[in-house]
Design a protein around this nucleic acid. Sequence first.
DNA 1: CGGCTCCCCTGGCAGC
DNA 2: TGCTGCCAGGGGAGCC
Length: 262
Amino acid sequence: MPELPEVETLARYLRRRLVGRTIRRVQILTPATIRSPRPDRFTRALRGRTVQGIDRRGKYVLVRLDRGLVLVIHLRMTGDLVIMPRRRLLHPHTRVVLGFGGSDLRFEDQRRFGHMDLLPASAVPYFEPLQRMGAEPLDGAFTPQRFRAILKRRRGALKPLLLRQEVVAGIGNLYSDEILFQARLHPGRRVESLRPQEVRRLYLATRRVLRRAVRRLARAGEPVGALLAVREEGGACPRCGRLLAATRMGGRATYFCPACQR
DNA sequence: CGGCTCCCCTGGCAGC
DNA sequence: TGCTGCCAGGGGAGCC
Ligand SMILES: [Zn+2]
């Protein structure tokens, strides 16, 4: 279930495979997946379009097409984009198929939370969720100063803060736990109580955790993180060996070490 | 604004 | 075996 590193890895893969190729066939198996425009228009507008580029913003995949169109896709919890030969049987959770001749790009999504919007490129900056989206943590513009400024405007517990896409884009439930573990900060710690040194740790941990995960996913296809490896009921802290605390914050399962994270 | 609950939907799994 | 309830990595709406 994809957070920034997984979506970034997926976007890079799609870029390698799809740029320059032309959509010949569009098949919608679950109309609800298409949020806009209506399925018949969606199909007509996509047929014949050539992929010019693939971008990522937060957890969104953006497929840039000719004629000034962009296909904006969110995988949510269970969505995935897979490329496979056209002759391969459709997986039962296949929601949308874009046929590129011999191979398909298939959107598979068990829980049907994922969705896509086909927009004019000019409308993308005004597309609500993208417009609200916060800083890209792996971007060069994401500096310690910028991060400090972002946090200064906020109040409340760190974990829910990290999960808000309009604060920092792309962090989900798993990586937020990992980031807080690496930063040695308690998930319930209030952002306004952080000392400069701790803000710095949080900044560095955010970058390092996400960057490492992208690198590792690209190579091994396996997610990384000291905490992620033991993140379960009864797991031991990788740093001090004590039992991890398991709780819920903002309705999300949360794991941390009460000794190391303050 | 922050923080909570509910909801969208499906399936895996523990417990009875 | 079969049923039930709970849980899941996302995020928006509605409420206090
Ligand atoms: Zn510890």
